[in-house]
């Protein structure tokens, strides 16, 4: 059983980095935010597993912290990235060459 937790952690990390592809690729800012969401929830899972594996309780508190911040960050993202300010509704990413 010793391999299970680290294995899962590694698996989730790989998973997480695979999601990075979406951040990199986009195409819309919604996609990028989504990936951040994925990162949030995967990180939580990883932290829980690490807490179990290393026997550090406080890592669960870290997980709780991450979760609470995730909601707030997501709202910030949404509020900010797409708020309909005059003249700049269009997706800023399209400006990039």
């Amino acid at each position: 059983m010793n391999w299970l937790l680290p294995g899962l952690i590694l698996f989730l990390l790989v998973n997480l980095l695979a999601g990075l592809w979406r951040v990199w690729r986009g195409p819309s800012s919604a996609d990028r935010m989504m990936s951040a969401l994925l990162f949030g929830s995967t990180s939580v899972a990883v932290l829980i597993l690490m807490a179990e594996w290393q026997g550090i309780r406080a890592l669960r508190h870290v997980a709780l912290l991450v979760v609470m911040l995730a909601a707030i960050i997501a709202i910030t993202y949404v509020g900010i990235s797409g708020a309909r300010d005059k003249g700049s509704e269009t997706n800023p990413d399209r400006k990039a060459p």
Partner: peptide, 15 residues
Amino acid sequence: SLFRGIVMFIVFGMV
């Protein structure tokens, strides 16, 4: 793009 950079920064923080 700047926005991608920002998201990357946050992801960096998480990792």
